[in-house]
Design a protein around this nucleic acid. Structure first.
Lengths: 296, 296
DNA sequence: ACGATCCATAACTTTATGTAATGCGAAGGA
DNA sequence: TCCTTCGCATTACATAAAGTTATGGATCGT
């Protein structure tokens, strides 16, 4: 299967195919963008290497040999297959942009805003990969990732970054049902199990209270989306990441429990892979994400 | 259909196919007979040109991208098709040797001797092209030609040459029926119509007699084989080209009419085309022809 | 911590490819 | 017959493409 050993100069073979199609060295040279002399040399070298004539030289004309006709048919087909596959591979993903993000970011921030991007870029298709596990940027499956954490990252380039502020949020109904005043042990705390160290947990929030109380979450979820769903359903108090819950604060399905705010250690980062393909669509998506992340 | 424009470096594509098959730059380099660095450069250049990663670099390992897998499949198939066709074209005629000769030479000299060649070269197949019209050596259809004429020839290389001596021959029966003595006007002369100027005709033979006589052929044929057939059948006297009629002189079906001999102007030449394919079989046929022409 | 291994890169070398100039030869036309 | 045309062939030279050597970086395993 050592093709390098079995196949002579592919440049010469490509030249042969063109000469055969044109039945002329000079016409083939024009198509190939080289001189007639270059074509003459390639064919002569090929005939020499193969020990077989490919063309009978006549006066101001050439005639292909039988072998040349056989070989030329295979070459034309093979080069066409290669060219077609190259085209398919190069352009099939031209207008698709794959964006990876956490489930929460995808659900609360990205998806509600995609309609706006689509309006401005009608030919571009966005494919969203949501997963709370860290996205492998080296795999080439994702064009852009929105990753929570502390930059920089060794597998990608950060092109936009935004911090967040965390508040306590609950439903208006829950706020009305609870005793007035600061958070206390009577409150139902809804916790999210997140492995990321830069993510804020209830223990960290309580540790900063004065005086602290032995509060313990009564509900635990492994996705922040579920935590917020439960809070909006009036089942307790959740840590509200401003960027993620802003839409619910805006629509009134969540309210702030008190005035305390903690700045998050981690940030939301728009990251592109170190070795990323570059298409117009990807560039547009990047520009839009940068603007949107900073605006709202 | 300008493949040169549509396809990047075929060297890089051939490298890609090998890397994909081996799943290793280093192993591919060994097969290709180049260094790892050369492979690294070819893949990097290809990825750069296509704007698409082909391999995900991991520690001491690589992973092909989806595009690479698609492209690699087409490349493997295409290169295999090209290689197989090249093999077929190169080797299909490996053991067939095409020898061209005049009808007379083929019938009287070559065919009777072919059994000997076959005994010594059991794997080689000889194809004989008999025609009195001049054989076109540029057409690539004939590997070796035995051509009568005066060398050199501008369409081939003479690798052996032999002259001939012409005598008068007739059948033993005819010799007995005729009046004893030299050729005379009472003899039936059998003529061959040959366009070649180096061929001897009756008028040339009679012109050299002293005294000449107004002899005129009573039988004419367009193939020398027919002339000899008629002579052996007792229908007259023919000009006997020594090399061609020796077997009949040997077996007694022809006898010499008198002692006169004329050396022929033309010669029998073993000619190979200027741009000939070279196979073991052709080389063997050439060697055999050279030896046989000189021996007998 | 050290060594092994495999891909990446830079400076340099070699090979393959292409060019400009010229030659050759067979048709065709005057 | 002579001259012109045209298309492939060849040579000396230039350069682009491909390959090499040396070295670096990173991740395993011991």
């Amino acid at each position: 299967m050592n093709f390098r050993r079995r196949i002579p100069s592919l440049t010469a073979l490509m030249t042969l195919e063109a000469v055969l199609r044109h039945r002329s060295f000079t016409a083939a040279a024009i198509e190939l963008g080289v001189t007639q002399a270059a074509v003459s040399r390639q064919i002569a070298a090929l005939e020499e290497e193969m020990g077989l004539p490919m063309f009978v030289r006549k006066h101001r004309a050439i005639e292909p040999t039988a072998e040349c006709l056989i070989l030329g048919t295979t070459l034309a087909q093979s080069f066409a297959n290669i060219a077609d596959t190259l085209d398919a591979v190069r352009f099939s993903q031209q207008d698709v942009v794959t964006i990876g993000a956490t489930v929460a970011f995808s659900s609360f921030w990205l998806l509600p805003r995609l309609a706006e991007f689509r309006r401005e870029n009608s030919g571009v298709q966005i494919r969203v990969v949501s997963q709370d596990a860290r996205i492998d940027l080296d795999a080439g499956q994702v064009d852009i990732a929105i990753r929570f954490g502390i930059p920089p990252f060794n597998d990608g380039t950060v092109i936009a970054s935004r911090g967040d502020v965390i508040t306590l949020v609950c439903s208006p109904d829950y706020l009305q049902r609870r005793k007035a005043g600061p958070l206390s042990a009577d409150d139902e705390l809804i916790e999210t199990d997140v492995e990321d160290r830069s993510w804020l947990s209830w223990s960290q929030w309580i540790a900063g209270l004065d005086p602290p109380f032995p509060g313990k979450p009564s509900l635990r979820f492994n996705h922040y989306t579920e935590t917020i769903f439960a809070a909006r359903a009036g089942q307790g108090v959740a840590l509200g990441w401003g960027v993620l819950v802003q839409t619910f604060l805006d629509d009134g399905t969540l309210v702030a429990l008190d005035q305390r705010r903690i700045s998050a250690e981690g940030r939301y980062n728009v990251v592109i892979p170190l070795k990323s393909r570059r298409t117009v669509a990807i560039d547009r998506a990047c520009s839009w994400l940068i603007a949107s992340l900073h605006d709202g």
